[in-house]
Design a protein around this nucleic acid. Structure first.
Length: 515
RNA sequence: GGGCGUGUAGCUCAGGGGUAGAGCAUCUGCCUUUUAAGCAGAGGGUCGAUGGUUCGAGACCAUCCACGCUCACCA
């Protein structure tokens, strides 16, 4: 029926569209689509009633139970055609299941099945059985096309070896393609779906933890006339009707504390922040931030709450307080180690930086081979030494406390140590995962701190914080003592899912535009 | 931005101046319990782009583009 040169001929435009840039595989599928339509099949119908998910069928099947009929729907992931009968695997949200299709029983739809491909979404009704080879499968009694796929999917094959290990052949592994076409990544790489499912469970466990304690989840502006609450460069936008510049927030902090002034006992927000800076393994321009503020509490209290929260989240999603990261085991069981910044630097370098002048610090840094910017102040030098000599070696969860005041314009002065603030960061596996303080609620001190920041800004520090008059006005009405916390959710998720790139825990990480 | 690396079929990759390759996927034929199905055959490529060297470039050179890893920057 097919002349040799007829199959060699490139398919022509069956649906009349421009096909100059389509390859043969895509043209082929458009032809099949056309043929399906010609045989009266709607390739994009409106609904399908399904009774069960693949995974549940496999879990609940009993060989001695009475025969059960189910309807399932999913994407065809593999096909083995054998003339008058075929096997295929379909994949739904919970996994894969094998279908057995027989011409004798299906009749017309079996011919339609010949026009279907890997990637098509189908629905099948049939009874569950076990094949000769022992695989629980569905013996199809009816077949419905639910969506014709017009692009070839990367075909990933796998085999289970004698030791029960899964061997994957030709994995879809090109990182650029995986990130740009995450939908394909999700279809063919099941562990990707697991990571993002876990992401959702982590965030929901965090909400549960705070909700149970009566803290209110709130929403504050993403578009802000004055960006504040962190040191970073912002994305800038413009409101046409008001003719004012607006900034995408770099933090939620100042708005959330206004709500504490307003009388809430505890508020938290989980949302995107935006920072106009470089991208790498741990930075994406938009990222998910959790901030929590609780009235009448201080940073000691917040440390306890935080280690409890992370411990409980780890238990909820992993069933264990131990996370394995690149072969290293990290245990989130409270209490975490607490050590002051000066003490930890002394522990790792033998140097006591307490009470040192900027000049002395500079020479100590040189001695330790730590490069320091000429413009760096006292606090920045200490931070640099810490970042270089201590932080990378803090693997188990550790709270570093009591930071130099210069780096922390929104934190309250330490109650007993001059030059420091009541601040802590949680360090895990050598990286910061949270930042918290006893919040500065003295409006006069806060104004002075802002003014210091403005001086830095005037000297060209683009990341120095901006004075926010309305925030000062709020503080002047009186904010109760308050403990505040920020957690980079993406990084926490990296820890709990054993991923070393933020791009693996964000569905659509920022990419350069295509072409 | 620096260093290293990568870019060849839909996917995963070989090839290193002389006719463009493999496996999977696709197509044709056979096949009614297969499973990395099998057997026989076939089609599919601007070798990232542009210049250059050469009788001849996918390969060598230059520039550019994209991506990855890494360092720097950055809460």
């Amino acid at each position: 029926m097919n002349e040799p040169n007829e199959q060699a001929r490139k398919p022509t435009n069956p649906d009349g569209l421009e096909h100059e840039d389509l390859n043969v595989l895509m043209l082929r599928r458009r032809e099949e689509l056309d043929n399906l339509k010609k045989s009266g099949i709607n390739p994009y119908p409106y609904e399908f009633e399904r009774s069960d998910l693949s995974h549940d069928i496999l879990e609940s099947y009993k060989d001695d139970a009475p025969q059960r009929t189910v309807s399932v729907a999913g994407r065809i992931m593999s096909i083995r055609r054998m003339g008058k009968a075929s096997f295929c695997h379909i994949q739904d949200s919970k996994g894969k299941i094998q279908l057995y299709l027989k011409k004798e029983e299906l009749g017309g739809p079996y011919d339609a099945f010949k026009l279907m491909d890997i990637g098509d979404v189908i629905g099948v009704k049939g009874y569950i059985f076990r094949t000769k080879m022992g695989e629980i499968s569905i013996h199809a009694q009816s077949l419905t096309l639910l969506a014709k796929s017009l692009r070839p999917l990367p075909v990933v094959k796998e085999k289970v070896d004698d030791h029960g290990n899964k061997i994957v052949y030709d994995p879809f592994s090109d990182k650029e393609l995986r990130y740009r076409q995450r939908y394909v990544d999700l279809i063919v790489n099941p562990d990707v779906r697991e990571v993002f499912t876990k992401r959702a469970r982590i965030i929901s466990a965090i909400r549960r933890f705070y909700d149970e304690r009566g803290y209110l989840e709130v929403e504050t502006p993403v578009l802000q006339p004055i960006y504040g609450g962190a040191s970073a460069r912002p994305f800038k936008s413009h409101h046409n009707a008001l003719d004012v510049d607006l900034y995408l927030r770099i933090a939620d902090e100042l708005y959330l504390k206004r709500l504490i002034v307003g009388g809430f006992d505890g508020v938290y927000e989980i949302s995107k922040d935006f920072r106009n800076e470089g991208m790498d393994r741990t930075h994406n321009p938009e990222f998910t931030m959790l901030e929590l503020y609780v009235a009448f509490k201080d940073y000691h209290w917040m440390m306890e709450l935080t280690e409890q929260m992370i411990f409980q989240v780890a238990m909820a999603v992993n069933g264990t307080p131990v996370a394995t990261l690149g072969g290293r085991e990290i245990n989130f069981t409270p209490p975490w180690k607490r050590i002051s910044m000066f003490a930890v630097i002394q522990e790792f370098t033998g140097k006591d930086l307490r009470g040192k002048t900027e000049l002395e610090l500079r020479s100590i840094a040189k001695e330790l081979h730590v490069d320091v910017e000429p413009s760096a102040g006292l606090g920045a030098i200490i931070d640099e030494i810490f970042g270089e000599k201590a932080e990378p070696y803090l693997i188990q969860p550790t709270f570093i406390t009591d930071y130099p005041i210069e780096m922390s314009p929104l934190a309250k002065k330490h109650r007993s140590e001059a030059g420091l603030v009541e601040r802590f960061e949680g360090i895990v596996n050598g990286h910061e995962i949270c930042n918290a303080f006893s919040e500065l609620n003295d409006p006069i001190d806060q104004r002075a701190r802002f003014e210091e920041q403005m001086k830095l800004r005037a000297r060209g520090d683009e990341e120095a914080q901006v004075l926010d008059e309305d925030y000062l006005r709020a503080l002047e009405y009186g904010m109760p003592p308050t403990a505040g916390l920020g957690i980079g959710i993406d990084r926490l998720i990296m820890l709990l899912t054993n991923k070393d790139s933020i791009r693996d825990v964000i569905f659509f990480p920022q990419m350069k535009p295509e072409k």
